[in-house]
């Protein structure tokens, strides 16, 4: 495993620990691909709760949408006070540091849930 692979795996693990169990009162049921560099996870959300995060899944797994970014973008986004331009997923996307792909309807319909879930590893005071 290269240093880059280790860094990606550590970020994915950090995300799993923070996001698993994240819940809001809403009727979101979806499987979402989250990518840390080349390391991928499937986030399984059922009735507004992150029920499971898969590190192994079949090729062509039918995820609804994907959120992809490199390790530096995720690390910066998870700072307690992220720097300007790194503090929001759209700010990252505007600079080409993050990509959202797939069926954007559930993404926009549950946007605050998605934003907050993706930010769960953010450092607290």
């Amino acid at each position: 495993m290269t240093d880059d692979n280790k860094k990606e795996a550590a970020l994915a693990e950090r995300f799993e620990k923070a996001a698993l169990g994240f819940a809001r009162d809403r009727n979101l049921c979806a499987d979402i691909l989250v990518e840390f560099g080349t390391t991928q996870r499937i986030v399984r959300i059922r009735q507004g709760k992150v029920e499971e995060i898969l590190d192994r899944f079949p090729l062509h797994f039918p995820w609804a949408f994907a959120v992809r970014a490199g390790t530096e973008a995720w690390e910066a986004h998870w700072e307690r006070f992220p720097a300007p331009g790194l503090h929001d997923i759209f700010a990252l996307a505007k600079q080409g540091k993050m990509r959202m792909e797939g069926n954007m309807q559930p993404f926009f319909a549950h946007l605050q849930f998605i934003k907050d879930m993706l930010a769960t590893p953010r450092k607290e005071a």
């Binding site: 307690r80 006070f81 992220p82 300007p84 503090h87 929001d88 997923i89 759209f90 700010a91 946007l111 605050q112 934003k115």
Partner: peptide, 11 residues
């Protein structure tokens, strides 16, 4: 609301 939430400073 969700779209503009990221346009506030985190501080």
């Amino acid at each position: 609301a969700a779209l503009v939430s990221g346009m506030c400073a985190p501080q």
